[in-house]
């Protein structure tokens, strides 16, 4: 019997993602990751940083940042299963002993280690015989956090979100729920459902017209936001607006397979809305931050202000690494 070594590309090579990206092609998975570092830097709770854990991840992080900040465009469509080993480091927190609270211990920075799996969106819809699909499903089974990207713009035009979610979800469930390990019949993952491209006029208009938006009195820019408790309903509405009627069932599908308390909904935008510097606040007539350029591609027009990009990641991180981060306002 010949001894056989692992082939190149074998997923069993020592890397297992904590968090897998899930979403159709063009739904903004890679752009979301590219914006994560910027979002952390710009967060109100200053001092957050994103670093690569190894040279590969550092290089990729730099490339993604440069794509947004320097080239002022979006990453190219992902073509292969791609791993990023990143770490989020927060501002140092002062600690005290419960039994002697008058003396502070040396400050300690919270650290969340996050391994992301990015992939080409169409892989979710491939047949099970596809060798990359097998690797993807294996990774999903071994991961415990999911960032599910739902692109309302794409759904309105293509409508393939259900197809991408349904097939892969059943395969993962088939692998995980057949045995006795999960007796409640639910997948053990935490899933952050992210409605992407909030800066897209179609999405923002629905949110505003359907009354899902509110203004945060503390926000000087007066950007309309969807309150956390209304995001789920907004998501359901967007699913109903889809090109594909099956999309309506996505929310039910998610809640059928995952514990409700392990699902959280976010409205996100990787680049945020355009704010005229002279006006200094949101202008409903001039908020497009992504415009066509002369070459037919897309260009980011103004400052990049990621919306709800950091929050789902921090939430997943705190769920997957309990104790790494103490309670914070965005941590519920």
């Amino acid at each position: 019997m010949a001894e056989t070594d692992s082939a190149p590309g074998d997923p069993e090579r020592g890397r297992e993602p904590d968090i897998a990206m899930w979403g159709a092609s063009g739904s903004g998975k890679t752009a979301f990751l590219a914006a994560l570092s910027i979002a952390l830097n710009k967060s109100r709770d200053a001092g957050w940083r994103l670093i690569g854990e190894n040279p590969v991840s550092r290089t990729e992080l730099a490339k993604l940042r440069n794509t947004l900040l320097q080239a002022r465009t979006f990453p190219a469509p992902t073509e292969a299963l791609t791993y990023y080993s990143w770490m989020i480091i927060g501002p140092p927190e002062t600690r005290r002993r419960w039994w002697w609270p008058w003396t502070a211990l040396p400050a300690k920075a919270p650290k969340i280690k996050l391994d992301f799996l990015d992939l080409r969106g169409d892989l979710y819809a491939e047949s099970e015989s596809n060798i990359d699909k097998q690797a993807l499903i294996t990774s999903l089974v071994k991961s415990r956090g999911l960032l599910y990207m739902f692109d309302p713009d794409r759904e309105a035009r293509v409508g393939d979100a259900f197809k991408h979610l349904d097939a892969a979800l059943h395969e993962v469930a088939g692998r995980m729920l057949v045995g006795d390990e999960y007796e409640d019949g639910k997948l053990p993952h935490y899933i952050a459902v992210c409605i992407t491209k909030y800066d897209d006029p179609r999405v923002l208009r629905i949110a505003m017209e359907e009354g899902f938006t509110e203004r945060d009195p503390g926000d000087e820019l007066r950007i309309p936001q969807v309150p956390p408790d209304r995001v789920r309903d907004f998501f359901r509405l967007l699913c109903q607006e889809s090109y594909d009627h099956n999309t309506e069932t996505i929310l039910d599908l998610i809640e059928a397979f995952f514990h409700k308390d392990r699902i959280r909904y976010f409205v996100t935008s990787s680049v945020g809305l355009f704010i005229d510097e002279e006006l200094g606040r949101f202008d409903p007539d001039d908020f497009l931050n992504v415009i066509d350029n002369a070459g037919g591609g897309l260009t980011i027009r103004g400052a990049i202000r990621p919306m709800n990009v950091m929050e789902p990641v921090i939430w997943l991180g705190s769920m997957l690494r309990p104790g790494a981060i103490r309670n914070r306002p965005w941590n519920g």
Partner: peptide, 21 residues
Amino acid sequence: NSASLHRIRLSFAEVPPTHGT
């Protein structure tokens, strides 16, 4: 791209993959 899972056995890259290569 060393961050990507690929089946290429011999290649050029900017940085080497983290594992097994």
